[in-house]
Each structure stands twice: as structure tokens, then as C-alpha cells.
Design a protein around this nucleic acid. Structure first.
Lengths: 167, 167
DNA sequence: GCAAGTGTCTCGCTGAGCGAGAGAATAATC
DNA sequence: GATTATTCTCTCGCTCAGCGAGACACTTGC
């Protein structure tokens, strides 16, 4: 009806989409004996591997907001599942390199690969101009969320927000 | 070449956006002494309240894919935080209605409200036609993910959706 | 009344993640 | 070359979310 409704619908669409993607990931994880955290770790590791970056337990834990103990447990699980392998860094022998096994590649590929294929197929029904618009839109939304994330983090301890708990 | 690259860029944008939204939610949760599950429950409850639907522990647990025991624990936590209230259904006294307290409304409003305002502001920089395109795009992507979710569930020797327990 | 069905909660347990700190290696200073 | 500080990773003990199994309360059908 009014110009106010369409944007609000988009907000709900955005949330709905993230919910679906979350559920998709959660079900994939559960179906493969993984926890959501394990899956996020796997994604991070695969991304890094593709970018040719070296991942250590420290970096992984930082990315996932886990403490060192939790990270060790996570790496143990992934290693036990045969998805990654530990290897001492010969340059700095305090460090441990996390190497992704083929099994993990296949797991990620066979699953997300299918989804990505479907997404690309659906995109083919949009014109180049439309895709460009969608891209700009997604970028704008991502920027807003990222900025809001920064903002609320600063609020905590300064503004009128109660910000309870936290000893 | 750009005809192949642009869609792939969109895929990564989608994932990046969901990651940002997830982190946003997780930080909000942590900042308020909630767990991710608690937050998801709260969103579900607020949605239902706005739609005028009655939520019972059973329905909530089903929506969040939680065990009845886990659901009881979840409801206990939310009640202890003063976010919801239990109330026996006078029609069917086996049932418990989950009533959202004002405090929960404020929590959701004061936080997501701000984000939504920012998102709407950013959308104002797009024309009506562009917003329509973005909406169709989001709908298409959501449909694909939802369909993929169904597909993989069936792959898993599943059969009729268990809806609960089983496995 | 009694039996079957449904909705919620209790009990005991597993395991992810936390805080604290130990251990091993490197880097910096004398 | 030894000593100290720094940087990674891992171990220990603990808390608590969520699971499986089953108890309890209530409703419906006979």
C-alpha cells in the first residue's frame, strides 16, 4: 500500500533468509555429526585454505570468539573426525598449523557446492542490471549491520543502556 | 567473464551478510546475559505475540528443534530473567501459555528497533524499482535455500519429517 | 468410573566452552 | 651464552545447555 510497507517487507525477508541459511547450516552440521561451531570453523578453514593463508588454533579461536581451551577442544574434535590435521610450524615451533584434509574439502564441496549451484541457477533468471542492483543492496545492508555492530559494542559502558550483568 | 564473477560475488555477499547478522545477534545476546538459543526463542515469541498467536512450550520447542527437557530449561531461563511468564491455559489446563513481558518487548525494540531503523534509512537511498528488484532477489534466494533444506533432509534416509525426537 | 492420549516437567547424564594456569618455544637484553 | 619477557598451545576443573527416559497432570472417549 504505502511506501513504508515495502522496505519493512524487505527487512523481514532479510531476516527470513538468514534464518533459512542458519537452519540449513545447522541441519548439515547435525547430519554429519558436527556442531554448529565445528561447521563455522570448517568454513573459516576452507576459506583460509582457498586464500592460501595459514591458520593456527589461535587465529581460529579468535575468529570464532572462543577461548584457548575451547579452541583446543574444537581442534581435537575436527582432528578426531579426520577433517583437519595438526602440524608444527617449522619456522616457529610454538605454532601449530591446521591443515585441511581432503575429506573436509569434499564435505564442504558436496554440500555447499550444491547450494551454491542452485543459487547461481536462480540468479540466472535476473538480468545483469538487476544483479547489480541486488549486489549494491546487499552491500548497503551489510555495511549497516556491520556499523550497528560496532555501535552497540561501544554503547556498552557509556550510554544510558543498562547493560546489566557482566560482574 | 563478468557474467560469471558477479553472481559468485553475490553468493559471498549473501554469506557475509548472514555472518554479520549472526554476529550482531550473538553479541546482543552475550551483552544481555542471554544465549543464542534464548535470543532465537525471544524473536519467535515476539513474532508470535505480534501475530496474536498463543505460544506453548511445546510449540516453542518444536520451532527451535529442542527436546521437551531442553525447552523447559529454556523457558525457566527466560522466566528467571523476567522476559516471559508462564500461565496455565484455562481452556486446556495441561497447556501453559508463554506470555511476553514488557521488558522483553523493550529489549527487542530498543535493540533490533535501532538496527531496523538504520536498515530502512539505507533503503531510502534506493529507488522503488530497485527495492522491488532487491525484494524479488531475496525471495528467490530464500526459496532456493528452503528447497535445498528440504532436499538434504530427505537425502538423510529421513522420510516423513519427524518433527521431533526420532533419530 | 476407567483407559488412552496429550502437554509439561523431573532426573541423570554428556559434552561444549570458560577461567586459570602450566609447558614449550621464540625474542630481547644483558 | 644465560636470563627474562613474550607468545602460542594445551591441561585441569568447573558450569550449564540440551538429550533420553520417564513421571505427572489434565482432557477426551468409552
Amino acid at each position: 500500500m504505502s511506501e513504508v510497507e515495502e522496505p519493512m517487507r524487505l527487512v523481514h525477508l532479510l531476516r527470513g533468509l538468514t534464518v533459512e541459511l542458519d537452519l540449513f547450516g545447522a541441519e548439515f552440521a547435525a547430519g554429519n555429526g558436527l556442531h554448529p561451531t565445528d561447521l563455522r570453523a570448517l568454513i573459516h578453514l576452507l576459506d583460509a585454505a582457498r586464500a592460501g593463508e595459514v591458520v593456527t588454533p589461535g587465529r581460529l579461536g579468535e575468529a570464532l570468539r572462543l577461548n584457548s581451551a575451547g579452541t583446543t577442544g574444537l581442534v581435537d574434535r575436527l582432528e578426531r573426525l579426520g577433517l583437519i590435521r595438526r602440524e608444527r610450524d617449522p619456522q616457529d615451533r610454538r605454532r601449530v598449523r591446521l591443515l585441511v584434509e581432503d575429506r573436509a574439502m569434499e564435505l564442504g564441496q558436496g554440500f555447499f557446492g550444491g547450494l551454491i549451484g542452485d543459487l547461481l541457477a536462480a540468479m540466472r533468471r535476473f538480468g545483469p542490471g538487476e544483479l547489480e542492483t541486488a549486489g549494491r543492496f546487499l552491500e548497503a545492508m551489510t555495511t549497516v549491520v556491520a556499523a550497528a555492530r560496532q555501535g552497540t559494542r561501544e554503547q556498552r559502558g557509556g550510554g544510558a543502556t543498562p547493560a546489566r550483568g557482566s560482574s
